[in-house]
Amino acid sequence: MTNEKATRRYLGFLIPAAIAFIGASVAFKAADNAALLPPPALYAVSVVPVGIMLGMFWAHWRYMNEIDEFLRSIQVKAAFTGLIVVITLATGWGWLEFYADAPPLAIFWLNPLYWIAYSAAVLCFSPRDGAVS
């Protein structure tokens, strides 16, 4: 498989999945606000956005296996950067919540934060490593 085809396949899955995840999250919040579903049902329905999220990571995993080694090295660095940002912020903010009465941050935001940090890292590493000519 060519890199171009792998990228098209990846984005072809990721973009609709991201839209579905946002839609499911909004629907979830609306259902909760309107008290449409009892809490046990909300637990059950949460499988939908979580499943979509796992699908996004699966697509990312597949993409990293399909592209060539140089492009993969950029993806690995970017994914690791995303992980560093998420773990560091979660731990740092957690300490502030424990000891400095910082307002609680919902861990829901760690997933979008990961994707934002990962995307920013790809945009940073690609030209630096020569992947954009």
Binding site: N3, I67, D68, E69, F70, L71, S73, D129, G130, A131, V132, S133
Partner: peptide
């Protein structure tokens, strides 16, 4: 070589060391 154009560019400019198989 079944790699991307970017890979060749990065190898040529010394910004990436290819694996032994490549």
């Amino acid at each position: 070589l079944d790699v991307s154009r970017q890979s060749i560019n990065a190898i040529e400019t010394g910004r990436y060391d290819p694996s032994l198989p490549l």
